[in-house]
Design a protein around this nucleic acid. Structure first.
Lengths: 211, 211
DNA sequence: CCCGCCTGAATGAATACTCATTCATGTTTG
DNA sequence: CAAACATGAATGAGTATTCATTCAGGCGGG
């Protein structure tokens, strides 16, 4: 019987599980997945090499677990936040804010997801598209909903719009990651949402900046 | 003394150099850079293992050479094609067409660039930004030019616009790559350019689709 | 209350294997 | 014949994973 639904104390096992995950994020991020040794992860987590194998099936499974955990939590939060919203444009904005927030807060995690994601994207695409696919589905849902509501243009395919949105956010994060002095990722939120919705071409009428 | 400037016969050495590069693209694409063995590359190129080292300093250098060659040629072609154009919007369109054309034509190359690029992006960003940086500079140039010419909106930073453009194209290619039955990548050209310039939000006035 | 038995989580040295790279030896070319 | 080029078996460094062993602490019997 679980103590209580919310805020239950983590079991010692869960604590160690998370400690290893956290360590793996740091190590994989700083040395790259292939450059990192399991010994490094063990050292960072302050456990013995063998202990890793009591919690994860192997190196690859460890990497996958990071994605599943992180993306799973992210999607959960996203669903909560947009659950009782009606405006698709607002949902889109929230989604992007959450995306930037999550990665902007955790540099190591961002590095891992942006740099190592691709390899697993191929892997993931092999069978279930995995959690990333789930996320992309959310984006598409919002776009379609927006089109039905008449807030978004109907003359573009939802797939293409999804590519635009995800690609832009993803690339923004990557360039932030590789920049010399990145600053706060969230400062790009409003401009990004605007350029996504309004596009690059000069607007007919409204024009923002003065300089 | 070079035979002639253009269309010179390739020396035997150049031929073998290219054969190895081509083989490396195929092998790296199909097994992933880290999963591929030098032996595999040698076999695919129909040369001995040791021969690889007569043409490249090592595995990593081989990978880098692919980027430099391919991106170098791409940028050259891009510069040629837009050299005597004046409309920034048209330049943007040409750039995107070239991007889609180049990758749409060569599945293995696309796979390699989309999947393995990230690792090397970190590497590249460490010192010289490399050819990819050069490409991104081209995108930014076009955007800035467009803003000065009044064709593109001035209220977004060129950096952000660059992220939007490159991110969208990049993500489009990736999703094409991972799709079950991809079709022709170029069919996305026109819609992509339109959604980039006009954005997702419902246009004020003009509306394309009938359904 | 104390002691010694158990359990299974944790350890980390040893293993078993994979590959990038080398170089002694052949082969072609001029 | 010499020089340049090509070969591919041998090398050895590096590392994911295993498993025999340790040990903390719960538990029952004296």
């Amino acid at each position: 019987m679980p103590e209580s639904e919310m805020a239950r104390e983590l079991t010692p096992r869960e604590q160690k599980y998370r400690r290893i995950l956290r360590a793996a994020i740091e190590v994989f991020a700083s040395k790259g997945y292939f450059g990192a040794r399991m010994t490094d992860v063990a050292e960072a987590a302050e456990v013995a090499d063998g202990t890793l194998y009591l919690y994860f099936e192997g190196k690859e499974h460890l990497l996958m677990s990071i994605f599943d955990e992180v993306l799973g939590r992210f999607i959960e939060r996203l669903d909560e936040e947009i659950a009782n919203m009606t405006d698709p444009a607002q949902k889109l904005s929230v989604m992007i804010r959450l995306h930037l927030e999550t990665l902007g807060r955790d540099h190591a995690l961002a590095h891992l997801l942006q740099i190592e994601t691709r390899h697993s994207r191929r892997f993931m695409s092999t069978f279930s598209r995995g959690k990333l696919g789930e996320y992309l589905d959310r984006v598409r849902d919002i776009v379609e909903e927006g089109q039905e509501a008449g807030v978004f243009r109907r003359d573009i395919s939802p797939g293409l719009a999804t590519n635009l949105v995800f690609g832009a956010v993803d690339e923004l994060v990557t360039s932030w990651l590789l920049a010399e002095n990145p600053g706060d990722l969230l400062r790009h939120h409003k401009p990004l949402v605007r350029v996504l919705t309004d596009g690059i071409a000069r607007g007919r009428g409204r024009q923002g900046g003065s300089s």
